[in-house]
Design a protein around this nucleic acid. Sequence first.
DNA 1: TATTTTTTCGACTTTTTGTCGGAAAAATAT
DNA 2: ATATTTTTCCGACAAAAAGTCGAAAAAATA
Lengths: 251, 251
Amino acid sequence: MMATKGKTKNLSDLPEPLSTQADERTAHPPLSDWDALLDEISHRPKRATERKQDRSKRTEQQILAAALRVFARDGISRTRIADVAAEAGISTSTLYEYYKSKEDLAYDVPLSHLAEFFESYRNAVAGKETARERLMLYLSMSADYAREHAEWARLLYLEIWPSVFVSETELHRSIDDFSRVILFLVRQGISEGKLAADRDPYETAALLVGGVNQVIITWLLYRRPRNLTKAGTEMAERLLSMLENEGAGRG
Amino acid sequence: MMATKGKTKNLSDLPEPLSTQADERTAHPPLSDWDALLDEISHRPKRATERKQDRSKRTEQQILAAALRVFARDGISRTRIADVAAEAGISTSTLYEYYKSKEDLAYDVPLSHLAEFFESYRNAVAGKETARERLMLYLSMSADYAREHAEWARLLYLEIWPSVFVSETELHRSIDDFSRVILFLVRQGISEGKLAADRDPYETAALLVGGVNQVIITWLLYRRPRNLTKAGTEMAERLLSMLENEGAGRG
DNA sequence: TATTTTTTCGACTTTTTGTCGGAAAAATAT
DNA sequence: ATATTTTTCCGACAAAAAGTCGAAAAAATA
């Protein structure tokens, strides 16, 4: 486990609260917690691949692409390893050289897209300072990314998340990262005085994640409402407005 | 502010004059849409069991109970049919007499609890008239029921829902029922003037379901916050207050 | 008690997963 | 270039799990 500061409550499985109190004195921190967080989530090692030849990297990509297609089409539980291998144009035994089981494969498939999402968010959010701007961008980009990569989203939202959490996988950590960003920004919103300070940040984060995810899931299942990007953005806008209103009403 | 419609369905334009015991002898009993809905979701046929002997009914219960335990403990994908059969104290081939596959079994396991939840809600909500009361009860009871039947909830929330939606199962319909109740009450809240009329009821329902489900899922994964009933109730209370505030601000 | 119907299960087949040694391909050394 | 070593790939096989079926056991009925 990583170094923990202060008393260690048994919150080991929860996203660690990032330090928020230390940098009160510096007007402009050299590397803000925010940048550090973005840095961290973008740099998670994807997969300790020990393969030497370029050929192998190509094969791995073929496997992942094939698995995404087949999983999204048939569902993970119904697909057979042999199906994925055939789709990838290799033998089953070769696939076993790369992944030791279907579960192992399934947990690896969503990783690269997730990393890509974090990376594109990091680029897009540069320059935005307020918690509201950052949150709005994050949530609407989530919805938009799901729309644009529907197979991936279907796999992640409907099949893997949240059941992936039972196991200690790289994917688990990456999905935790997703929530940590929200949590960080909720805390920023509180310190900006925009969000209610007397509310549990975890609850506020859950509210945001839950609402937007629900919109995404509904779209994946029924393709409704038609425009997912718009629906996700509206939901985020609505939630944030209500939350700010709540914060203002209390002081 | 109120919808004016000439005919079609009277979707609770007014606070429901609940049937009570007034006009019992009319040809068409004054069963309100609300009562009809509750009636419908409570009476979904559970499973067309054609078994004749009592012994079979016991065996079926043993299978379902065993499956719940094993699925919750090992996860559906990791459990073998033989494990469930052993836990139920029967042979695998006997289990196949009852369920044609693991998937078939998995989709049947949550049904009885779901029916029980609907039934107990129906009893508890009797007498409550306003959309707020009904919604609060529904959402907090959802959280409480998940706490009290954690194995069942783990199976349903983390493993089956929402992936069950891809197939046409009885469980699919039952889970749809869950959302239909929320949607109905959101509409009632709008017609009462408590919720914003210019918002998509589906979006409002998604917001409520998403937020509370997120709390339940987090608890199932991390047992945090400690008190799920309280957390679910608080989340519901908070969301409803914000929604009513939103409605009042615009009205 | 005899007969019929229903339920159970052991033996079996089929399907899917997973392993392994060596062939094929690529990288490296001579 | 050719030989040698390393890496990747795959066919043949073994292991595990799913799924079938006929007949025995149990219950219901005559």
